[in-house]
Amino acid sequence: MRLMPKDLEKLLREPLLHFLLVGSAIFAVDRLVSKRGGEDPELIVISEGRIAALAEGFARNWQRPPTSEELEGLIRDRVREEVYCREALALGLDQEDPVIRHRLRQKMEFITNDVAALAEPTDAELSAYLDAHPDVFRVQPQFSFAHVYLNLERHGENLERDAAQLLAQLKQAGAHVDVPTLGDPFLLEHEFQAVPLAEVGKLFGETFATALGHCPRGQWQGPVESGYGAHLVLVHELTEGRIPVLGEVRDAVRREWANAHRLDANEKLYQELLKRYSVIIERPQPVEGQKKLAARR
């Protein structure tokens, strides 16, 4: 039996339900972990279900079921853990422990995340998200280009002359050039196919990537400066950047939409919970030095 999607959608928009789900789950988790309280504070019961869970946990870690001896060890350890946990709680050792507090907060957030994750976005929602954030999904301009590298160290003051000379040769020869045999040795490729702008920037530096964008197509140009030295470049093809349609970037849009949805759900829950509290913050008056530092920042 499945919950109808419509019902589910309604449920998800119900903040109270969120809260209750969260509340019940957190208690459940807490009980599973520490089992404190109960009927008799001095009674420790390791139930059949618990034993099965211990065995299951072992199997997940070791990829085989525990031997009876190992299972006995797990049970003994569980009892020991239970005793320590109860004593620690009685002593208030869980208070102001940053790890425990983080864990609890994380559990709360995971639960909201789970609830948020139940919502499957419609195409309309995804399209709307894409329309609202076009730059996030923009397909970058892509370059197909060849280049000839000029090592500044080798050419020194003659670089300009040498570059101009080689450029003239390249222009004359047109497409019939064995590019990698020209110029100076270079450890990356000499020919690049459909490389996105950011990738060009990563490989050659921003200056080069920007300059490439201004190069007319089909003609040897240069020298263009990179982080390595100078290059003569031939842009074969430049595919302009554009806003994609949903079908091309559905996974990415879904990821970003889910992320936004999750943050939103977390924030809403937090605001809902926060309403139930009065918060007083007793700030100390800032001393002179701190003021100065704050101003500098």
Binding site: L152, G156, A164, A168, A211, G222, P223, E225, G229
Partner: peptide, 26 residues
């Protein structure tokens, strides 16, 4: 300063500059 590029600002080629380079066969 990243690269000590010892060349004038030739980030992009200027057509005029190109024209000034004698285009001789080599």
């Amino acid at each position: 300063p990243r690269v000590g590029l010892r060349l004038p600002l030739l980030v992009l080629v200027i057509p005029a500059l190109l024209l000034s380079v004698p285009c001789r066969a080599s």
